[in-house]
Design a protein around this nucleic acid. Sequence first.
DNA 1: GTACATGCAAAGGCTTTGCTATCGA
DNA 2: TCGATAGCAAAGCCTTTGCATGTAC
Lengths: 152, 152
Amino acid sequence: MKRFQLADHQSRFETIIRKLRENGHKVTPQRLAIVRQLTHGEGHPSVEDIYDRIKKDFPTMSLATVYRNIVLIKSLGEVLELGFADGSNRYDGNKPYPHPHVICIRCKKIVDPDLDSLDEMKNEVASETDFKILNHRLDFFGICGNCMKTEG
Amino acid sequence: MKRFQLADHQSRFETIIRKLRENGHKVTPQRLAIVRQLTHGEGHPSVEDIYDRIKKDFPTMSLATVYRNIVLIKSLGEVLELGFADGSNRYDGNKPYPHPHVICIRCKKIVDPDLDSLDEMKNEVASETDFKILNHRLDFFGICGNCMKTEG
DNA sequence: GTACATGCAAAGGCTTTGCTATCGA
DNA sequence: TCGATAGCAAAGCCTTTGCATGTAC
């Protein structure tokens, strides 16, 4: 399981780098570090998370560089941006396609559940409305098991 | 159907005004107009929408007043805030509790579908994760029937 | 009359943009 | 070499806040 996940992250890392090259973009050390955070780092980092982690290796790193690279990778369709109502943003380079999330409101951890009922809901939305559905965003908010233990 | 909706909007309007009074807040003409937009106006207005519509009757109306009143009504739990990834916000004073939305990416219309599969999905999330789920946000994005006709 | 609300302007927080030097291919 | 990129600072955008005036109760 762990091995699979690592392999998966590695292949996502390589895919993004390849796509960058294919589209004529240079692979700078800063860019590599950002892509690494999006795929290998702690799950679903924010721009600040990425910036803080990389700044240790690149003291001159600027937030603008992180922002610009995320815009670039988004334009390649290789990272999913999760904007929240409070204005915060989190990024997922491993599953850059729409999928449900479960978010802990205490520790901010984000989990990706497998929901068999998703297909059924999509069908229901299509039949209930006259919309052509192209995309979705499904978030559940609560308190994770760890935080329940820690703080009741 | 239409009658029911109108009655529903009216009762929502009255509920919010009553809650404001109950909590010691004054009912100013501007406040009334904002609550009216949240309940009787075109569905799911943005702050700008509310501001623009009210400015006709209150030329001195300021955006700050709209923002402050929305914060207040949110604190009473009487309006649902829908913040989107692009930073835009829309408000629903008629159904101030979490519910799924279907959003047209062209005309920005928002529809509230009735989804029988919602309960099933909630159960599945609970059993798939060790989270205690408190809240959710379910959005589907696509093109509405009207826009399909108009622009293909 | 008094506490709360409004309106204006200024300040904040996050993100984007302009410019110049630098660096990857 | 040469165009793309990084870094810095400034500008933008939406939202919040401070303060004086105005107003609901």
